[in-house]
Design a protein around this nucleic acid. Structure first.
Length: 577
DNA sequence: GCCGTTTTCGGCCCGACTGTTTTCAGTCG
């Protein structure tokens, strides 16, 4: 059983306990446990197999959750979860995904009206039987009816890239308000999470009404969900919710910190404040006095963190993982920046499924300030992309040799290939051909549904090939569309480290493969990461920034990423590999 | 259910908004 499978079980337990109105801190303990396991960076099974180590050494895992991990690993299931699931039908849980319906009122609907699915709930609303319940009314009934459609399509988090486009439009729209002194996006968008569930925008203005009126005129809006003195929420036609907060200037940093989250990061931060007899809220940091709390910081995030003797923790790291320990040890990583990138080592041309020619890709890369690129078209197995046979590949390299003479000084294009790892585990091109390449990417496109054993041994075998430099899109996942292969990533990290191979961080916003947790794990193994666009057209070379953001979330520095090297250093890296 | 530089028991972040109430519970982030 993998870490993420264990984490899912703990999340399910938490959801069900929440529905049962259990002790909220017990529920939180399960959620924290799930997060701790998911973010662990090494398999729970490995710790269990090692007599010298204990699961209870993991923060958030106590005696009970450690036992439950062991049961899950041994038997593949958890009796406690089975029991809870027999009490509470899946459809009842679905009610909690309706905005405005939490565990308390969902339980009332389940117990009083015996509603066990969203369909039955819809009927109950239409019959008007909800409004008769104590604590419910006509408005609640109407809002539930409206929310059922939202719940049915819940969990639709959008790509960061899509959120970025909406954020830009929103900032421009609000920018017309003369009273706005400061404005910034917060939330998971600011933390650069790979997907975003909603947007948060923070504003300093003396004229709250003006800002809220303008916010209510956002062209994509369909509903105003709430409007108070400082907070307003809207929903867009796409279903995306946007929250606006208007705060005084002296609270801007505190509010920015607060609304950037993550929630778990803030819980940790507030706990620390409490130990110092301080209190943090979105208005500032306060010293708790008997008569009146005294404001001591809040205009900037620097002030807020400094009040707790902490440096500003980059938003990308605010996930309650290692960032506080690193900050305490004065060891926060200097995260990689877009300006650090010097090369792009995965791209396609019109020889296979790319749009542009070799020359056009070189020109576009040079225009973007890159110093070196690798041309890496598909190998023959990818017939749908017109993958290259050995002779066509050799011909492409000849063409590249000729083109090199006309390339600008200081710009280098190397001979690469994205060679398929066949279902059998063989590579798609013979070793004598791969031996002539400057840069060999291996990757999986077929047989993605093989068993964990099959696909893991297949990928690790490809990493063992002496001609291989790097594994591309290592898990194969497409965000919101396709699950990762059943590959055992811990085995992949071990193989890459053993054979001195690199791993790709594919920068495509739909892939972002490796994810942040995998990147941190790869870093801990000392495996060089290469951030690549996998561009299939010249303008897709611009996707690099999404990969850099993901790398930052993984805690990577310039030194952890191979394509930040100068051309000379990169060549040395290749020779040593 | 977890955790420990006041603690092995008694805490566990904190405030805004809505709807249904007549002073507050539930939900959300």
């Amino acid at each position: 059983m993998t870490n993420s499978e264990i984490a899912v079980v703990f999340e399910q337990v938490a959801d069900l306990l929440e529905f049962k109105n259990a002790n909220p801190f017990r529920i939180r303990a399960y959620r924290n446990g799930a997060r701790a396991i998911r973010d662990l960076g090494e398999p729970v099974t490995a710790i269990l197999a090692d007599d010298t180590r204990k699961l209870t050494d993991i923060k958030g895992i106590g005696k009970d959750l450690a036992e439950k991990c062991a049961i899950l690993v041994d038997t593949g299931e958890l009796p406690m979860l089975n029991e809870l699931q027999s009490e509470i039908p899946e459809g009842a849980l679905a009610m909690m995904r309706i905005p405005g319906l939490g565990p308390k009122r969902a339980a009332i609907l389940f117990n009083e009206l015996e509603v066990t699915s969203l369909g039955e709930l819809k009927l109950a609303c239409e019959r008007g039987s909800i409004r008769a319940l104590k604590g419910f009314g006509e408005k609640t009934e109407a809002s539930i009816l409206k929310g059922i459609a939202i719940a049915a399509s819940a969990d639709k988090r959008i790509y960061w890239q899509q959120a970025d486009q909406i954020a830009a439009q929103l900032l421009q729209h609000l920018g017309d308000c003369p009273s706005i002194e400061k404005m910034e996006m917060a939330g998971s968008y600011r933390r650069r999470r790979e997907t975003v569930g909603d947007l948060d925008v923070l504003v300093v203005s003396e004229d709250v009404a003006e800002v809220m009126d303008r916010f209510g005129e956002f062209p994509k809006l369909t509903d105003v969900l709430a409007r108070g003195d400082t907070k307003m929420s809207i929903r867009l036609r796409s279903g995306l919710q946007i929250d606006l907060r208007v705060v005084p200037a002296k609270s801007f940093g505190a509010a920015l910190q607060y609304f950037t989250g993550s929630k778990d990061h803030n819980v940790e931060l507030r706990g620390r404040a409490k130990q110092r007899n301080l209190k943090i809220n979105e208005y500032g940091v306060f010293c708790i006095n008997t008569d009146e709390d005294e404001y001591i910081a809040g205009a900037t995030e620097e002030e807020v963190y400094a009040a707790l003797n902490l440096p500003v923790i980059p938003p990308e790291l605010r996930e309650a993982r290692q960032e506080f320990a690193a900050a305490d040890a004065n060891d926060l990583p200097p995260l990689i920046e877009m300006e650090d990138i010097r090369g792009d080592l995965h791209m396609h041309t019109n020889a296979t499924d790319g749009k542009h020619t070799l020359a056009e890709m070189c020109e576009a890369a040079h225009a973007r300030g890159l110093e070196y690129i690798a041309i890496t078209d598909h190998s023959k197995r990818v017939t749908i992309a017109n993958g290259l046979e050995a002779d066509r590949l050799l011909a492409q390299w000849e063409e590249l040799d000729a083109l090199r003479k006309s390339l600008p000084d200081g710009f280098h294009a190397i001979k690469g290939i994205e060679c398929d790892i066949l279902e059998s585990g063989e590579l798609d091109l013979p070793d004598d051909v791969l031996a002539q390449a400057d840069w060999v990417i291996v990757s999986v496109h077929f047989g993605q549904h093989q068993t964990s054993e099959q696909i893991t041994s297949r990928i690790c075998g490809a990493l063992a090939n002496p001609h291989t430099h790097i594994l591309a899109h290592p898990t194969g996942r497409l965000i919101n569309r396709r699950n990762p292969y059943a590959v055992d990533m811990d085995a992949v990290f071990a193989a890459a480290a053993d054979h001195g191979k690199m791993l790709e961080l594919n920068a495509n916003p739909a892939r972002l493969d490796l994810n942040d947790v995998h990147l941190a794990a790869a870093k801990s193994h000392g495996i060089p990461i290469v951030i690549s666009t996998d561009a299939h057209a010249a303008d897709q070379l611009d996707l690099m920034r999404f990969g850099v953001m993901q790398a930052r979330r993984g805690g990577l520095t310039k030194a952890d990423v191979a394509n930040t090297r100068s051309w000379d250093e990169f060549q040395k890296l290749l020779q040593n590999g």
